[in-house]
Design a protein around this nucleic acid. Structure first.
Lengths: 225, 225
DNA sequence: TATACATTGTGAGCTAAATCACAAGTGCAT
DNA sequence: ATGCACTTGTGATTTAGCTCACAATGTATA
């Protein structure tokens, strides 16, 4: 499915900088694809010649670590995915999997490069976002490594609530074992800690639906382990 | 000290793409500064209006984590530092400290942005390097989190040997306590493990000078913890 | 040269969290 | 409906690595 980028309600900050003719070029050289929950969007080790723009849904970025699968981060729209692959060696260095029904634009790499070359505002926005990712990634890594497990779990819950779902009640889009991969702990520990949080009156659970009932406490746990 | 970038032996891959007139602009708008071992080059939380090009020496990039100082990575020339700060909110999100006597170029931010805008090859090289950093950072983080401490220490030694010093014998530019901050473990554990490695005949130590005597074993430890 | 301060080595005990083991619940495909 | 596979809950046991404690080195500076 081809669409006109000028009319797209999901357009990126970077693409906003593009002139009409550039947007026209983008319209002609991308394709919108839908993925169902659980579908693999890109797979580590495979070849890729597209930049991916995440326009709708939710995905996890994950890599095969030395021992187990590691979820690096969750990404929500609007954002570009797979830039490193595209400008690098064309081999995907990580996998991306849909956590909800998701829509992405596959943008032809040469088109994308052309846009970078002919439109410096666009390129600068891309650089800006890459820089933001780098800092995020430093901080996330320092947190993960230094905090104790319960602190990390609390942080993930807060982050989902604040950044992704923007509500105190939400349904975790991950199994407990995936949450384990995200904060690098075992599935059992996740289960135990969630029960603890519930017993302490910090959250309420119904299946995967979580309600944060005492945000203050959860923040304290996040800070103090 | 101002210098002519056209004659600089330390020029970056990105700057190689610049035309003579752009290089001239760069020459006029940067300044070379020397730092002694231990000097702070940029400090987290302070204001910055320069991009830094690391031309000579060795530095550590470190952030103040939730509990302790975390060394995010070591950086060696040639590389740009502090890009995220510059294109972001101007507040340094991390500190950079010299581990050896180091020379850097402070490049005025507006000049740098001008170069990005007027020279798409230059911008593309910058994007390329930012993408590489992102992947590096994903991998480093997954490794750090998943590997056991001895595996991380082995990896750091191998990495220093292969990437930074390009020799089996080198002097660690960090105290054991800093090594602890790098692989997130305690100073005591670093000491104990280094002794173990020596006892096992994998390395030889004289103060901070280390010789890798059995690379194969060290690689095994790095892989298997 | 003396004095202070940072760095290392090593023992002892403690603890968070992993692993193992099994039971119970959930959901989706035939 | 009936299985089968994936998920979750919880106990028991084990362990890597932290913390505390103190001694022995360096190594800057007055």
């Amino acid at each position: 499915m081809k669409t006109d980028c000028q009319l797209c309600p999901y357009i990126s900050d970077a693409a906003l900088k593009l002139a009409a003719c550039d947007l026209h070029q983008l319209s002609d050289n991308h394709i919108v694809v839908s993925f169902k929950k659980g579908d693999s969007i890109i797979k580590q080790g495979t070849y890729s010649t597209n930049v991916i723009f995440l326009r709708k849904g939710l995905v996890k970025i994950h890599i095969t670590g030395p021992y187990s699968e590691q979820i690096v981060k969750l990404a929500k729209p609007p954002t570009y995915l797979g830039l490193p692959t595209t400008v690098g060696d064309k081999i995907n260095q990580y996998s991306i999997t849909a956590l909800e029904d998701t829509e992405v634009c596959f943008i032809d790499m040469t088109t994308f490069k052309d846009l970078l070359k002919t439109n410096d505002e666009f390129a600068f926005e891309i650089i800006r976002s890459l820089c933001r990712y780098e800092i995020d990634s430093f901080c996330r890594c320092a947190n993960r490594i230094q905090k104790q497990t319960r602190g990390n779990l609390a942080e993930v819950l807060l982050d989902m609530s604040a950044t992704i779902f923007e509500s105190d009640t939400f349904t975790i889009p991950l199994s407990q074992s995936e949450v384990g991969n995200l904060i690098d702990t075992s599935r059992e520990s996740v289960s135990r800690m969630l029960s603890e949080f519930e017993k302490d009156g910090i959250i309420r659970m119904q299946g995967r639906q979580i309600t944060i009932t005492n945000k203050r406490s959860l923040e304290l746990v996040s800070q103090n382990g």
